[in-house]
Design a binder for these strands. Sequence first.
DNA 1: ATAAATTTTTAGACTTGTCTAATTTTTAAA
DNA 2: TTTAAAAATTAGACAAGTCTAAAAATTTAT
Lengths: 218, 218
Amino acid sequence: MFSQSEENYLKAIYQLSSITKDGVSTNDIAKKLETKASSVSDMIKRLSEKKLIEYKKYYGVRLTKEGEHIACSVVRKHRLWEVFLVDKLNFSWDEVHDVAEQLEHIKSPKLIEELDAFLGFPKKDPHGDPIPDKHGNYHVVEKTLLSNLHPGEKGICIGVKDSSSDFLKYLDRQAVKLGDEIAVMAKEDYDDSIHIKIDKRELNISKKIASNLYIQTP
Amino acid sequence: MFSQSEENYLKAIYQLSSITKDGVSTNDIAKKLETKASSVSDMIKRLSEKKLIEYKKYYGVRLTKEGEHIACSVVRKHRLWEVFLVDKLNFSWDEVHDVAEQLEHIKSPKLIEELDAFLGFPKKDPHGDPIPDKHGNYHVVEKTLLSNLHPGEKGICIGVKDSSSDFLKYLDRQAVKLGDEIAVMAKEDYDDSIHIKIDKRELNISKKIASNLYIQTP
DNA sequence: ATAAATTTTTAGACTTGTCTAATTTTTAAA
DNA sequence: TTTAAAAATTAGACAAGTCTAAAAATTTAT
Ligand SMILES: [Mn+2]
Ligand SMILES: [Mn+2]
Ligand SMILES: [Mn+2]
Ligand SMILES: [Mn+2]
């Protein structure tokens, strides 16, 4: 069994790996986990000795098969718990993350498989992120950022890039939800803001907002 | 916030306190937590500095109001999670303990209150133990051990004293459940075994079994 | 190609929680 | 009441995980 701390490092490396094909850098891990690079260096050594990552000094790390398996199962647990909190316990999507950070470390294979079944084998978490099945497989859906759409184009809002509480609450206030159809009406060159039509309403949103919303491209 | 380890010590002291009015001894805590007396001594010092227990060297410990409050909330969480596992996730009553030992340390007031509501505010856990409400109040039910009943007496089985997996599985095999009416037919002086009638069946059980079953006395 | 800046690693310290072995204190027995 | 046994504490060590400050390696800029 692995400690919560080890699992957090593996998960961080797993998520950072998905956005680059190079090894993951010490500093990036430190930033993601809000810790110091020296702490990361220490942990990297331990994980490497346990064969959970491949590590060449000064050149970043990569997960081994086993490391990836563990990281993926932590992500699976995190997202399933988020679904549980929203679907069954009346949490809103901006409240679930911190609790899921704790719940993802509970060790019990039966628990997670039963939870999965209890929730009806959901494929996505409340933020639109895919939930790996028990073998680590998940469906990758073609998507782009709203900021990449041109006037006249449209699509379905299927996820958020930033899932910070602040951003999610902003979306709630604007009544922007996953599943909504969004059409880009116009772009303002001066500040890159865009005018959209969503659910029969018209809305003006900043570049920053648009570049944190994922749109399903048909 | 307190660490898992601190919470485990507080819970152990809380549960040991309920069976004696004296202070709880170092050795008893060590036995309950399957750790060494020296470790207990160390932790006792820390908890005492944090004003969670009152401690006079060599004379055992008592929880302060705050210590009791924390301990009680851990017990509440443990038992609510046990109900969740049995009622919603198809766990049997002998499988829940280890998972609940982990879940009881999750920190989120909203989580536990919502879970309580989701489960319909249960009053008892799967082993018949009372679940304190959010203020720490619970209903104490008059009960005695089956081994204290005399031939001709009867009552409802409402709890187990030993909730080890081995004992619970034994009860499953004999189809003895909480809520069953049990009548004592005869006692065998030679080995203190007793002959009972339960749910229309007749059964012979040892002294050891009888002294681990709680019976509601009318 | 050398120097400067950045990144990464190491050295050393600290906290929490645990252990074994030795010592002290209390309790029970003679 | 002195002695023996049991219980509790202390001393000292260790592992995990983290941090600051310093050193080393790599990358970038001149
Ligand atoms: Mn999350
Ligand atoms: Mn999520
Ligand atoms: Mn339990
Ligand atoms: Mn229980």
